[in-house]
Design a protein around this nucleic acid. Structure first.
Length: 479
RNA sequence: GGCGCGUUGGAGAAGCGGCUUAACUCACCAGCCUUUCACGCUGGCAUUCAGGGGUUCGAAUCCCCUACGCGUCACCA
């Protein structure tokens, strides 16, 4: 039935109803890695059948986020392919065609029930302690009754006639065998809405089949939808694809990742100065584990390493700590020019290229994301003295500090150019003259400049601060 | 509530009946290095696999029950 049944074809099919979620990104990544590793196809399809919530902005956001992560598709929206179009609202005729077959074969029927009627039915069922489900009342409508409803101007939905007592077995590649009973599905479900737009469960089946998808890899929230889709495949006489349901990503409190857990959109991480390689690496490790002991992988390595067999069944908690660590690993491997570019987004225009480079060099080992640079800005900008903590104050209280700082300041004053090298030299000179070295020499100077006992290299910080600001800070200490 | 899925340390996890007195990574703690911090290095961190029953010579690994967590029950995807 497929042109090439052996070819692995997967897809990422998001709804453009919001920015790309971290969970969606992981689904896309797993699909992408699977395709790349097997030399298969990765298809990008837009499931925009919810016309109220879908927006072009969301679609754009999803595409940009995917591209930023380095996930590209070789068939799908924008670039087309043999099964175009790839946007569901542009495929309406296709869905209607298949629906007609279902209708003709008696697998589907028109339903004229109003929202009110449906609601009343549901309430009654709940009252009786039953699970709410459509009772199939329109299933046996006579031609005459149908005509009457049509005459009233009621726009019907098309429902799928769910067979009784059928066992639906999903051979899931990550969860194993999962069984559902057809009568537990919740009644005859809608496949075409009254406005002629197909529902999710129906459109996915039609598209996945027509687009020759071999493996459906998606989030676990779709597992309970699968029996409906299985029924549809069978009724249409289509062979089922392989399924793999990957577990959800949880927030720190073990509930599904949502806005209250902080950043959930890929764009958030982009804006916060994370590196796409790090996010990809992190996402890959969420629910999948490598065979060896190495954990840092490039996209190319992941393509080789990834396999569905090593995908875990249990949900994974999103650990920002580890993401930050991974990001720092990638960040430190970057040439300083790229770090300078990365932190530029968090700096004012007053920062020249040269100073940005020096800042990048100074902070490389002290920041985990580009936005962390903001934490260090007070150290290297402005002349206001920084408040000291207890330890720092103790350092300044030492007897030799006044003469040390005075002597150091005097030497700085004579310096024509402040660079890390000249400053370091000046510190050493000062130490030599006063007979000081080690912590006794460096620590008071550090505290005088930064107000703290800890921080990046003092010579670099001083150079960034500039002569004027540096002298003001030193002067302040002597008061 | 019905149905489904899951449960190994603070987090990600390996483990697929004996090689496990449970890998590896993050976090944490200690030490070394360093002018400081960080980086880096070294070491520590689950006598135990949600709990309880079974099966077996032997179980984290197989079966059952209980508990807990999550997902899903739409003309939303």
């Amino acid at each position: 039935m497929r042109d090439n049944p052996d070819r692995l074809r997967v897809r990422f099919a998001p709804s453009p109803t919001g920015p790309l979620h971290i969970g969606g990104a992981r689904s896309a990544l797993f699909n992408y890695l699977l395709a790349k590793g097997a030399g298969g196809d990765f298809i990008m399809r837009m499931e925009d059948t919810d016309r109220d919530r879908s927006s072009p902005e969301s679609e754009e956001n999803i595409k940009q986020s995917l591209l930023w992560l380095g996930i590209t598709w070789n068939e799908g929206i924008d670039i087309g392919g043999p099964h175009a179009p790839y946007r569901q609202t542009e495929r309406l005729a296709t869905y209607h065609e298949a629906a007609q077959k279902l209708l003709d074969a008696g697998h589907a029927y028109y339903c004229y029930c109003s929202e009110l009627e449906l609601e009343a039915m549901r309430l009654k069922q709940i009252d009786r302690g039953e699970t709410p489900h459509y009772d199939g009342r329109c299933r046996r409508l006579s031609a005459g009754e149908r005509a009457a409803k049509e005459a009233e101007g009621i726009k019907p939905v098309l429902r799928f006639a769910v067979p009784k007592d059928e066992e639906l077995l999903i051979e899931d590649l990550v969860r194993g065998q999962v069984v559902f009973q057809s009568q537990e599905i919740g009644g005859d479900f809608v496949i075409i809405k009254s406005d002629g737009i197909p529902t999710y469960n129906y459109a996915v089946v039609v598209d996945d089949h027509l687009m020759e998808i071999s493996h459906v890899v998606r989030g676990e929230e779709h597992l309970s939808n699968t029996p409906r889709q299985l029924l549809l495949y069978d009724a249409l006489g289509w062979i089922r694809p392989a399924f793999a349901h990957i577990s959800l990503i949880l927030g720190e409190d073990r509930s599904k990742m949502s806005k209250r857990h902080g950043s959930v959109s890929v764009v958030n991480y982009q804006a916060e100065g994370y590196l796409p390689q790090a996010l990809v690496n992190f996402l890959a490790l969420l629910g999948w584990s490598p065979a060896g002991e190495e954990e840092i992988f490039t996209m190319q390595e992941l393509e080789q390493e990834f396999s569905l067999e090593r995908v875990a069944k249990n949900p994974a908690v999103f650990d920002l700590n580890k993401l930050r660590w991974l990001n720092s690993q990638y960040l430190r491997a970057l040439p300083k020019e790229q770090i300078a570019d990365g932190i530029a987004a968090f700096l004012t225009d007053e920062w020249t290229e040269e100073r940005r480079l020096l800042l990048a060099e100074t902070l490389t080992n002290h920041i985990e994301t580009f936005s962390d640079v903001c934490n260090f800005l007070p150290l290297v900008e402005g002349s206001e003295p920084l408040t000291c903590d207890e330890d720092a104050a103790a350092v300044l209280a030492q007897e030799h500090v006044m003469s040390l700082i005075s002597s150091f300041a005097a030497k700085i004053e004579t310096l024509s150019e402040l660079t890390p090298a000249t400053i370091k030299e000046t510190i050493k000179q000062t130490g030599k003259e006063l007979g000081l070295k080690g912590a006794a020499l460096f620590m008071p100077i550090r505290v005088a400049i930064t107000g703290s006992c800890h921080g990046p290299d003092i010579d670099k910080l001083a150079a960034l601060l500039g002569k004027e600001n540096l002298l003001v800070r030193l002067k302040h200490v002597r008061k």
